[in-house]
Design a protein around this nucleic acid. Sequence first.
RNA 1: CCAGCGGUGACCGAACGGUUAGGUGACAGUCUGUAAAACUGUUUUGAGCAGGUUCGACUCCUGCCCGCUGGA
Length: 302
Amino acid sequence: MNKLLIISGPTATGKTDLAVRIAKKYNGEIISADSRQIYRGMDIGTGKDHPKNIKIHLIDIINPDEKFSVAQYQKLALTKITEIQNKNKLPIIVGGTGLYIDSVINHKPTFDIKPNYFLRFFLDRLPIFILQKIYFILDKKNYLTLNNSDVNNSRRLIRRIEIKLSNKNSLLKGTSFPNDKGFCILHISLTDSIENIIKKIDTRIQSRLKAGLINEIKNLLKKYKWSDPGLNTLAYKEFVGTDLVSALHKEIQVWQIHEHQYARRQKTWFKKFTPDFFIDISKPDYQDKINNIVTKWYNKNI
RNA sequence: CCAGCGGUGACCGAACGGUUAGGUGACAGUCUGUAAAACUGUUUUGAGCAGGUUCGACUCCUGCCCGCUGGA
């Protein structure tokens, strides 16, 4: 068994439900690819599901004040995948964090280069044009290939400088290549019109508030600070600086907008990182379609 | 009824007698250890209405309409 099923898609498209159904049918185990659900104690705000009888891996693995990143995710996910496969079960990756999913599919040579927090401490307080100059001097060739978006992104420039200074590897554009695990991957991405997604997001926000989101935040703040990495998350960060008691309408509206924008960014991501199948969940027969695709793939030279 | 202040593009909101405000949102993107992050591009010269002054008015003047505040 070297099969790996991936279910991706923007928020509020029913990825987990689908994964649970498939897991039950094919004796599978679910691995989450969600950069926020890795945090313990952040349940309501991140919409964690706890389906009966099915365990979801890679959720609740670190505390909100701990740092985490794709490279760590990749390692954990790849180990889990092999573990599950060795049990002769089907691993199913489910999530909306495109970068995390990509890290499982494609090998990233720069993942060996660890962040240099000492260096970052200094670079972090430099203005963008200085960072540009530094990177230009260090790595002129690659600097010139950067697009407008990346040249102005200090976070990414700093990482490039970090990589260059590590002296291990030079970052080349397009050096992404499939991982060497030889997985037989089926990647299905769910999609829907943005209007439908927005509707679902808005009702979901209301139910999260009713479910006690504000209390969850209060509890988190007893142990953690707003500046902790985990709290930099939609549904939480909008409430920074409020007393969490009086009129929160404005904050909720902003949260709503951020949530919509996030869904659009996810759509953009999955549009580009073309999966095998794009399934429009607003079509009535979408479940049958998925069943056919999965069955066919699953039974292929088993 | 009187007085004061104000009416700017989907929204908020400046400056200025002639030159792109800016922000938010929206739309489209970027993506190799923060990714629910960070960043990029685009968004018909718009000015409550009617006149006037001026070479030229969002900017000055007059009238009207609307809103807020204070007073009878």
